[in-house]
Simulated scan of single mutants.
Amino acid sequence: MTSVDMDVEKYLRRIGFGGSAAEPSLELLRSVHSCHLLSVPFEDLTVHSGGRVQLSLPELFHKIVNQRRGGFCFENNSLFSWLLMELGFQVTVLSGQVKNSLTGLYGPPHDHVIMMVHLEGRRWLCDVGFGVPGFRVPLSLDTGGLQEQGHRVYRIRKSTEMHFMEWQKEENRGEAGDWTEIYKFTLEPRRLEDFTEMCQYHQSSPSSIFFCKSLCTVLKPYGRLTYIGRKLTTTRFPSEATGGVLETSTRDLTDEEIPHVLAEEFGIVLPSPLIPKDETITPLPVLY
């Protein structure tokens, strides 16, 4: 690949940020985090169109900013951490282990890349590379209390050195509601190079959702749009228009429709033909 000019202003235009980025602030952090999620899809389509993901920042910039693509956690969060550092934030890269909602198993170490930002004496968890049920703006690492974002409630529970990012589903909201663990992590600093092996694993293992399913999802002001295999699902968050309930509708897609849906709904045009895939994930035999 030819040399890539990694320009901060071009990145900010890509995510639709129109404010001031002169100095690091909580307002700026929240804004770019939200803008990224509303503009850059969480997707693994490279894996299913004959390519391989490499954790090179210039390549990620070219893909996400210049080609207006998305990526999975290793791509979105790696590039977003670069943006935050360029904007003057103090960023620490962290390693997360995602809990499989079907098996109850946690992924291996370095299964998920996330970030901690130190700002004005406080610590914030940032993650623009998760998909559902990711949080729209950074979560405080300095409280174990409820953190509400629209119709969703999150908390970060600490047990010795391990932190657990959890959320409440819409029907379970409240102090006494059931909590669902999303992933666990420590605050031990990591390097982006530490995730290289797991990045390759997620592109080749039948225990990884990214190998088993071609997917693309993006946050919308009204909810979320998700493509998996040969289906497109529209989720509308509770509002007056939905009668205060979460609405979900799904339609089947033909192979011929999929490229048009990706282009029209997600702004993605792939350089090679996509092979749609939606296979059952093989559970890992080890509980981490």
Rank of each mutant, 00 (worst) to 15 (best):
P138G: 05
F130H: 14
I156M: 11
V153E: 13
V91W: 04
R155Q: 15
R157N: 11
P108V: 10
H112E: 10
M162H: 00
L141A: 07
L141H: 08
H110K: 07
V91Y: 01
G96E: 04
N100D: 15
H163P: 00
G96H: 07
H151L: 02
Y106G: 03
W167P: 00
V93G: 03
R155P: 06
K99P: 00
E166D: 06
H118A: 15
V98D: 00
S101K: 12
L141I: 04
L125K: 05
G104K: 08
C126T: 12
H151Q: 14
E161D: 15
S95T: 04
G129H: 08
H118I: 02
Q147N: 14
W124G: 05
H118R: 15
Y154R: 00
P109S: 14
V93R: 07
G107S: 12
R152K: 15
H112R: 08
V137C: 04
S101R: 13
Q149P: 08
E148A: 13
L125R: 01
W124P: 02
D111Q: 07
V91G: 08
H151N: 15
K99N: 00
L119H: 02
V132S: 15
C126Y: 02
E166I: 01
R152V: 13
Q168H: 14
L125F: 07
V137R: 05
G144R: 15
P108R: 14
V132C: 05
P109M: 10
Y154D: 00
L141E: 07
V113D: 01
S159C: 10
L102N: 10
L146A: 14
M115C: 14
G129C: 07
D111P: 00
Q90Y: 03
V117I: 12
E170M: 12
S101D: 10
S95I: 00
M162F: 00
S101I: 09
L105W: 01
P133T: 09
G96N: 08
S159P: 00
D111S: 09
G134W: 09
T143H: 13
E161R: 13
L146W: 04
L102K: 13
V117M: 02
Y154A: 04
E120K: 14
G150H: 10
R136H: 11
L141F: 02
E148I: 11
F89M: 01
R157T: 13
P133C: 08
R155T: 07
Q97Y: 04
R136P: 00
Y154F: 14
M162L: 12
T143K: 12
V93S: 03
V153L: 11
Q97W: 03
T143Y: 12
V153C: 15
D127W: 08
V91S: 06
G144C: 13
C126K: 01
R123A: 04
G121P: 03
F89V: 04
L94Q: 06
G134R: 06
V137S: 09
G150P: 05
F89Q: 03
G150L: 10
D111N: 11
V137H: 09
V93C: 05
V93P: 02
M165E: 06
G150S: 11
I156E: 14
L119Y: 05
L139H: 05
H151D: 14
G104E: 08
F89P: 02
Q168T: 15
H112S: 05
L102M: 10
Q97G: 07
